[in-house]
Design a protein around this nucleic acid. Structure first.
Length: 153
DNA sequence: GCCAACGTTGGC
DNA sequence: GCCAACGTTGGC
Protein backbone atom coordinates (compact mmCIF):
# COMPACT_ATOMS: atom_id res chain seq x y z
CA UNK A 1 0.00 0.00 0.00
CA UNK A 2 1.36 3.37 -1.04
CA UNK A 3 0.81 6.79 0.52
CA UNK A 4 0.07 10.06 -1.24
CA UNK A 5 -0.51 13.69 -0.43
CA UNK A 6 -3.33 15.46 -2.23
CA UNK A 7 -3.90 19.20 -2.12
CA UNK A 8 -7.16 21.05 -2.29
CA UNK A 9 -8.08 24.60 -1.50
CA UNK A 10 -10.63 24.37 1.31
CA UNK A 11 -12.68 27.11 -0.34
CA UNK A 12 -13.02 24.86 -3.39
CA UNK A 13 -13.28 21.52 -1.59
CA UNK A 14 -12.46 20.90 2.05
CA UNK A 15 -12.08 17.93 4.37
CA UNK A 16 -15.48 18.86 5.80
CA UNK A 17 -17.00 18.60 2.33
CA UNK A 18 -15.50 15.12 1.96
CA UNK A 19 -16.71 14.10 5.41
CA UNK A 20 -20.22 15.09 4.42
CA UNK A 21 -20.08 13.37 1.02
CA UNK A 22 -18.14 10.30 2.26
CA UNK A 23 -16.46 9.82 -1.14
CA UNK A 24 -15.43 12.12 -3.96
CA UNK A 25 -14.19 12.01 -7.52
CA UNK A 26 -10.79 13.75 -7.45
CA UNK A 27 -11.22 15.45 -10.81
CA UNK A 28 -9.81 18.58 -12.42
CA UNK A 29 -6.17 17.49 -12.37
CA UNK A 30 -4.60 19.23 -15.39
CA UNK A 31 -0.93 18.65 -14.80
CA UNK A 32 0.68 15.65 -16.45
CA UNK A 33 3.01 14.85 -13.58
CA UNK A 34 0.19 14.95 -11.06
CA UNK A 35 -1.98 12.91 -13.42
CA UNK A 36 0.74 10.30 -13.75
CA UNK A 37 1.00 10.01 -9.98
CA UNK A 38 -2.75 9.54 -9.83
CA UNK A 39 -2.53 6.89 -12.54
CA UNK A 40 -0.11 4.92 -10.45
CA UNK A 41 -2.48 4.83 -7.47
CA UNK A 42 -3.92 1.49 -6.43
CA UNK A 43 -7.13 0.70 -4.63
CA UNK A 44 -6.36 0.60 -0.92
CA UNK A 45 -3.70 3.31 -1.06
CA UNK A 46 -3.97 6.06 1.55
CA UNK A 47 -3.75 9.78 0.90
CA UNK A 48 -3.19 12.71 3.23
CA UNK A 49 -5.62 15.55 2.60
CA UNK A 50 -3.75 18.85 2.46
CA UNK A 51 -5.48 22.22 2.65
CA UNK A 52 -3.60 24.53 0.27
CA UNK A 53 -4.00 28.30 0.14
CA UNK A 54 -5.40 28.07 3.66
CA UNK A 55 -4.52 29.94 6.83
CA UNK A 56 -2.45 28.06 7.71
CA UNK A 57 -1.90 25.46 4.97
CA UNK A 58 -1.36 21.90 6.19
CA UNK A 59 -2.46 18.29 6.50
CA UNK A 60 -5.95 17.88 7.93
CA UNK A 61 -7.21 14.38 7.18
CA UNK A 62 -6.76 10.93 5.75
CA UNK A 63 -8.39 9.27 2.73
CA UNK A 64 -8.43 5.91 1.00
CA UNK A 65 -8.27 5.29 -2.74
CA UNK A 66 -11.36 3.26 -3.66
CA UNK A 67 -11.41 3.49 -7.49
CA UNK A 68 -8.73 4.24 -10.07
CA UNK A 69 -8.42 4.98 -13.79
CA UNK A 70 -11.76 6.72 -14.10
CA UNK A 71 -12.27 9.14 -16.96
CA UNK A 72 -12.44 12.71 -15.68
CA UNK A 73 -15.86 13.85 -16.94
CA UNK A 74 -15.06 17.55 -16.55
CA UNK A 75 -12.71 17.51 -19.56
CA UNK A 76 -15.73 17.00 -21.85
CA UNK A 77 -17.99 19.50 -20.10
CA UNK A 78 -17.93 22.87 -21.91
CA UNK A 79 -19.40 24.48 -18.80
CA UNK A 80 -16.61 23.30 -16.57
CA UNK A 81 -13.53 25.32 -15.79
CA UNK A 82 -11.63 22.11 -16.46
CA UNK A 83 -13.05 21.69 -19.98
CA UNK A 84 -10.30 20.56 -22.37
CA UNK A 85 -11.39 20.87 -26.01
CA UNK A 86 -8.13 19.23 -27.12
CA UNK A 87 -8.83 15.99 -25.29
CA UNK A 88 -9.82 13.23 -27.75
CA UNK A 89 -13.05 11.46 -26.77
CA UNK A 90 -11.65 8.15 -27.96
CA UNK A 91 -8.53 8.56 -25.87
CA UNK A 92 -9.22 10.93 -22.98
CA UNK A 93 -6.27 12.88 -21.75
CA UNK A 94 -7.33 13.19 -18.13
CA UNK A 95 -8.48 10.59 -15.68
CA UNK A 96 -8.99 10.54 -11.97
CA UNK A 97 -9.52 8.45 -8.87
CA UNK A 98 -12.26 8.16 -6.30
CA UNK A 99 -11.29 8.83 -2.69
CA UNK A 100 -13.11 7.90 0.48
CA UNK A 101 -13.08 9.79 3.78
CA UNK A 102 -11.25 7.95 6.55
CA UNK A 103 -11.09 10.71 9.10
CA UNK A 104 -9.91 14.08 10.20
CA UNK A 105 -6.90 14.52 12.46
CA UNK A 106 -7.67 16.08 15.84
CA UNK A 107 -5.06 18.76 15.14
CA UNK A 108 -3.81 19.82 11.73
CA UNK A 109 -0.14 19.58 10.84
CA UNK A 110 0.73 22.98 9.43
CA UNK A 111 3.26 23.51 6.67
CA UNK A 112 5.39 25.31 9.26
CA UNK A 113 5.37 22.26 11.51
CA UNK A 114 6.02 19.98 8.53
CA UNK A 115 9.10 22.00 7.62
CA UNK A 116 10.39 21.61 11.16
CA UNK A 117 9.96 17.82 11.07
CA UNK A 118 11.01 17.00 7.51
CA UNK A 119 13.81 17.84 5.11
CA UNK A 120 13.15 18.99 1.54
CA UNK A 121 14.03 15.61 0.09
CA UNK A 122 12.00 13.64 2.63
CA UNK A 123 8.61 15.17 1.92
CA UNK A 124 8.13 17.07 -1.31
CA UNK A 125 5.38 19.31 0.03
CA UNK A 126 7.80 21.10 2.38
CA UNK A 127 9.89 22.22 -0.58
CA UNK A 128 9.31 25.88 -1.34
CA UNK A 129 7.72 26.49 -4.70
CA UNK A 130 6.38 22.97 -5.07
CA UNK A 131 3.19 23.35 -7.06
CA UNK A 132 2.30 19.74 -7.72
CA UNK A 133 -1.13 19.00 -6.32
CA UNK A 134 -0.52 15.26 -5.94
CA UNK A 135 2.66 13.93 -4.42
CA UNK A 136 3.97 10.54 -3.36
CA UNK A 137 4.81 10.05 0.32
CA UNK A 138 7.36 7.44 1.28
CA UNK A 139 6.45 4.71 3.72
CA UNK A 140 8.88 6.12 6.28
CA UNK A 141 7.49 9.65 5.96
CA UNK A 142 3.92 8.37 6.12
CA UNK A 143 4.65 6.56 9.38
CA UNK A 144 6.21 9.65 10.88
CA UNK A 145 3.28 11.75 9.75
CA UNK A 146 0.83 9.36 11.36
CA UNK A 147 2.92 9.43 14.53
CA UNK A 148 2.83 13.22 14.60
CA UNK A 149 -0.85 13.46 13.73
CA UNK A 150 -2.29 10.67 15.83
CA UNK A 151 -5.22 8.57 14.72
CA UNK A 152 -7.77 10.12 12.34
CA UNK A 153 -11.30 10.26 13.64
C1' DG B 1 -1.84 41.51 -4.19
C1' DC B 2 2.82 39.97 -5.07
C1' DC B 3 6.06 36.88 -6.61
C1' DA B 4 8.80 32.58 -7.49
C1' DA B 5 8.70 28.40 -9.85
C1' DC B 6 7.38 26.04 -13.50
C1' DG B 7 4.45 24.07 -17.24
C1' DT B 8 2.31 25.07 -21.71
C1' DT B 9 1.70 27.23 -26.09
C1' DG B 10 2.79 28.91 -30.47
C1' DG B 11 5.63 31.54 -33.76
C1' DC B 12 9.63 30.97 -36.19
C1' DG C 1 14.08 22.70 -31.47
C1' DC C 2 14.30 27.32 -29.37
C1' DC C 3 12.39 30.71 -26.73
C1' DA C 4 9.28 34.44 -25.38
C1' DA C 5 4.83 35.07 -23.68
C1' DC C 6 1.51 33.57 -20.87
C1' DG C 7 -1.02 30.94 -17.30
C1' DT C 8 -1.24 28.48 -12.89
C1' DT C 9 -0.09 27.19 -8.24
C1' DG C 10 0.36 28.34 -3.76
C1' DG C 11 3.03 30.55 0.03
C1' DC C 12 3.41 34.81 2.11
Amino acid sequence: MAYWLMKSEPEAYSIEDLKRETTTLWDGIRNYQARNFMRSMAVGDRAFFYHSNAKPPGIVGLMEVIETHLTDPSQFDPGSKYFDPASPAANPRWDCARLAYLGRFSTMLSLDALRQSFQDDELAVVKRGNRLSILPVSQASAERLLDLLGPPR
